[in-house]
């Protein structure tokens, strides 16, 4: 129960960092070898060596962050906000050392100028237990609409 509570709090925190645009804090949630991965299709088993919507380590995350923060990131200039809801959290595996594998579902609403878009799907997290709390080794994001055409694109992590 304690694990479950802590994991939920952790997942809420990571989506709060995204929604409040605290990019560096969000990146710091990952282990040094951690990967954020959004496959184009649910059938994909690994992020390596095949197409990915996102497949980023902390270095590439930093590129994305610096770009978004740049004053001439034109597409990010207009009004733009997100709101994540995370739910259906279940721990699917607990390792002896306290590392966890966790599944959850999310719904993200995005406002861009006057338009609202909705993205939904599932998260799969590999979490490492550290002295400072959990750290993300892998965040896999399967979007329900991953295969649909993208009306405009995604500019930050979901």
């Amino acid at each position: 129960m304690k694990d479950h509570y802590e994991v939920e709090q952790f997942l809420y925190k990571q989506s709060e960092f995204l929604d409040t645009k605290q990019w560096q804090k969000w990146i710091d949630l990952f282990t040094p070898d951690g990967v954020y991965w959004m496959p184009p299709d649910a059938s994909y088993k690994t992020w390596e060596g095949q197409p990915a919507i996102f497949a980023e380590d902390q270095n590439l995350m930093t590129v994305r962050m610096l770009r978004v923060l740049h004053p001439d990131a034109w597409s990010q200039r207009p009004l733009w906000e997100t709101n994540h809801l995370v739910s259906n959290v279940s721990i699917v595996k607990t390792n002896k050392n306290g590392d966890l594998e966790v599944k959850s579902r999310f719904h993200m609403m995005e406002l861009r100028r006057d338009d609202v878009r909705h993205f939904a799907g599932s998260y799969f997290h590999k979490l490492k237990k550290t002295k400072k709390g959990y750290a993300i080794q892998l965040q896999r994001v399967d979007m329900t609409n991953a295969q649909a055409a993208y009306d405009y694109v995604l500019q930050v992590w979901v």
Binding site: P51, F54, R67, Y152, V153
Partner: peptide
């Protein structure tokens, strides 16, 4: 393909805006 041409492109996003 992933960095420039995916739906999370770091490049084409600004073209699309323009």
């Amino acid at each position: 393909y992933n960095l420039v041409n995916s739906p999370a492109t770091l490049i084409n996003a600004d073209d699309l805006e323009n």
